[in-house]
Computed example of a mutant assay.
Amino acid sequence: MFKRDFTEEQGMFRHAYRKFLHQEIQPHMEQWREQGIVDREAFLKAGANGFLCTWADEAFGGLGDPDFRFEQIMIEETQYALCADWYSTLHSRLVAPYLKRFGTPEQQQRFLPKCVSGDTILAVAMTEADAGSDLAGMRSTAIDQGDHYLLNGSKTYISNGINADLVIVAAKTDPLNNPRAVSLFLVERGMAGFERGANLKKMGKKGQDTAELFFADVKIPKENLLGVEGKGLSQLMEALAEERLISAVEALAAAQKAFDITVEFTQQRKLFQKQLCDFQNTQFQLADLRAQLDMQQVFIDQCVKAVNADQLTAVDAAKAKYLTTELLCKVVDEGVQLHGGAGYMDEYPISRMYTDARVTRIYAGTSEIMKLLISRDIYSGDYCPFIDRDL
């Protein structure tokens, strides 16, 4: 495997974050899975140690360094530590950047310092029962009432849905005349008419709270409009490439961990008076996965370079998200198979990783949507044959 491109400072950051995980997060994971939610204290401790919103300006309490590799390190270490339910990246790199991209100076000053410290936990609410990948099909509305908007509707499968203090909600602002006029709103905990459903029970990632959100005549002050009215879809699209890269980094890191767990098990497990790793079938299956993992790591690291240079395309992000999530599901499936009956037992990490992995091919755009985006690029007028790409 080629040497990866991290700075000395980022190496120190990795060691510090690894220590934080083992001291403050990993010991509580079992309890959080049982209760179905991560304690808010985890966000406060992460904020106090400088592990939330590292990109935020120092004036807001952040490190002031937008380099995506800091988040990549935290995603990788979180997966390696088997702490996938601690999904701080959702808060730090998926939701908070909306405030940076589209927030007014007043909104940034009001919200970002508490996001960096962990006092304010974030969520984004796009998905509805009949509008998952098809965001334009959402039914939630926010109608201009002069000095405020009146928000009505509901959202489902919202990560951080219980913990969130501030939710970025997408809703239609001109449903009769322009159904594609979607806007984003900052909805705060405690606003009258804003209610949460139960913490939903899931196949995997059981410690990550996921809920339905309900909005009944919620008065949204005009100053809580995020960005330009009616431009919400384009604002969401602007963030999707990085969101899909985050999903890809997460999936590949989980796949790397699942592979290592499986290799260790095959070295310990004996079958017919031989170690499982001595069988050619085991060796060939793992060799195939090892080659795919290494090849995809190179592509992901190139995508990270591209996002740092503001050059990551939607199509390349779709390729990354599609291939890594499909590979993750392949790795955990083979891992369970090589574990045999033990792989079906919850006490073995590979069992939990198997159930955690399945959703990765759904959220941030399904595998089918990723293939659709890639195929559209192939048949677009801008498509360039491989042999001509360097000319």
Rank of each mutant, 00 (worst) to 15 (best):
Glu8Arg: 14
Ala16Lys: 08
Tyr17Trp: 00
Lys19Asp: 14
Leu21Glu: 03
Ile25Ser: 02
Pro27Ile: 05
Gln31Leu: 09
Arg33Cys: 00
Glu34His: 08
Glu41Phe: 03
Asn49Ala: 15
Trp55Leu: 02
Gly61Cys: 00
Arg69Trp: 04
Glu76Gly: 08
Glu77Cys: 00
Ala81Pro: 07
Ala81Asn: 07
Ala84Tyr: 06
Asp85Pro: 02
Leu90Lys: 03
Arg93Glu: 10
Leu99Cys: 07
Leu99Ala: 05
Lys100Arg: 12
Lys100Gln: 14
Arg101Glu: 15
Phe102Thr: 05
Thr104Arg: 07
Gln107Ser: 15
Gln107Cys: 14
Gln108Met: 13
Gln109Cys: 06
Lys114Thr: 06
Ala129Arg: 13
Asp147His: 04
Leu150Arg: 10
Ile158Tyr: 02
Gly161Tyr: 05
Ala164Gln: 03
Val169Leu: 01
Pro175Tyr: 10
Leu176Arg: 12
Asn177Lys: 14
Ala181Trp: 09
Leu184Trp: 10
Phe185Lys: 09
Glu188Leu: 09
Leu200Arg: 14
Met203Phe: 02
Lys206Ala: 04
Thr210Glu: 08
Phe215Val: 08
Pro221Ile: 07
Leu225Cys: 12
Leu226Trp: 06
Glu229Gly: 06
Lys231Ala: 10
Gly232Thr: 04
Ser234Cys: 03
Leu236Ala: 13
Leu236Ile: 15
Ala241Phe: 07
Arg244Asn: 13
Ser247Thr: 08
Glu250Lys: 10
Leu252Asp: 01
Leu252Gln: 14
Gln256His: 15
Glu264Pro: 01
Gln267Ile: 02
Gln267Arg: 15
Lys270Arg: 15
Phe272Ala: 15
Gln275Ser: 14
Asp278Ala: 12
Ala291Pro: 00
Gln296Arg: 15
Phe299Lys: 14
Ile300Glu: 05
Lys305Gly: 14
Val307Lys: 02
Ala309Met: 00
Leu312Trp: 04
Val315Pro: 10
Leu323Pro: 01
Val332Gln: 09
Glu334Met: 09
Val336Arg: 15
Val336Glu: 07
Met345Leu: 13
Arg352Gln: 12
Met353Ser: 10
Ala357Cys: 07
Ala357Gln: 01
Tyr363Trp: 13
Ile374Asp: 09
Gly381Tyr: 00
Cys384Arg: 14
Pro385Glu: 08
Asp390Tyr: 12
